[in-house]
């Protein structure tokens, strides 16, 4: 089957190499379009004035911080069930980007909270569960880098990714389950969006841009992880980029 064919690092490596530059170009184009709509076309908000424009970065990074954790859990389940070698590498490749976006969610949220709520931080269900997500990412990274043996490291990481995924629906539904300072969902699966369509367009363009950015950088990063993990394999040693790098090292 084609999917299992690409589960081998040897086959995934060239595929990722073809995909990430294309995704990076698309991400850049969508980000430029999203920023144009968000900052040059969309009007100011009736209640929040210009401060609402933080939404164009806050919502995309927050969504992706959650989606990336779910993606890590997905790869981890595949790894635990099928024992595919790529799973642990993909989970590992996603974690730093997830941690970055979780941090940016808290950072942009703090800068939005100050002018609107009068405080950078409050121990509210939405904010606290997002902080826990950041700690889960950091915990995953610390745990996997502390265990030498790649197989044991992958399995331990996979358990953290799967168990920690419980936190994602808690973040998502926190604004409904608890009475929080954080506003409800701007866009939900069940209701029509409660925002002007031009603002929604800007937000969705930016979300798609961050999504593709995350995919591109994870695929770029996984190629390096594959090289290190498989550095003793002949197919890696015969790669033209490895041969070129070797010549470069010899010259200096």
């Amino acid at each position: 089957m084609k999917l299992f064919h690409y589960a081998a690092p040897q086959h995934f490596y060239p595929l990722a190499g073809r995909l990430w530059p294309a995704l990076a170009v698309l991400a850049t184009a969508l980000a430029l379009a999203g920023l144009w709509v968000g900052f040059m076309v969309a009007p100011s908000d009736a209640q929040q004035g210009q401060a609402y424009r933080i939404i164009y970065i806050h919502v995309p990074v927050s969504w992706l911080a959650m989606i990336i954790y779910l993606a890590m859990a997905f790869w981890s389940v595949l790894g635990l069930v099928f024992n595919t070698r790529l799973s642990g590498l993909m989970t590992r490749a996603l974690a730093p980007t997830g941690a970055l976006l979780a941090f940016l969610s808290l950072w942009t949220g703090a800068l939005w909270g100050k002018p609107m709520w009068g405080t950078y931080w409050v121990w509210d269900a939405r904010l606290t569960s997002m902080l826990i997500l950041l700690f889960l990412y950091l915990g995953y990274i610390a745990l996997t880098s502390a265990i030498e043996d790649p197989r044991r490291s992958d399995r331990a990481g996979a358990l953290v990714a799967v168990v920690g995924a419980v936190n994602v629906p808690i973040i998502y539904f926190s604004v409904q389950w608890w009475n929080t300072l954080h506003q409800g969902a701007s866009v939900s699966f069940t209701q029509s969006p409660r925002m002007a369509s031009v603002m929604l367009t800007g937000m969705l363009l930016m979300s798609l841009a961050v999504w593709l950015y995350a995919a591109a950088i994870a695929l770029w990063r996984v190629r390096s992880l594959i090289l290190v993990r498989e550095s003793h394999a002949l197919w890696v040693q015969l790669l033209p980029e490895v041969q070129a790098h070797r010549t470069l090292r010899g010259a200096t």
């Binding site: 401060a51 933080i54 950072w107 942009t108 800068l111 939005w112």
Partner: peptide, 14 residues
């Protein structure tokens, strides 16, 4: 609109 520090602080750091 007076929120420059917050808006650009968010976009710039990101």
């Amino acid at each position: 609109g007076g929120y420059g520090v917050y808006v650009w602080g968010s976009m710039g750091v990101s």
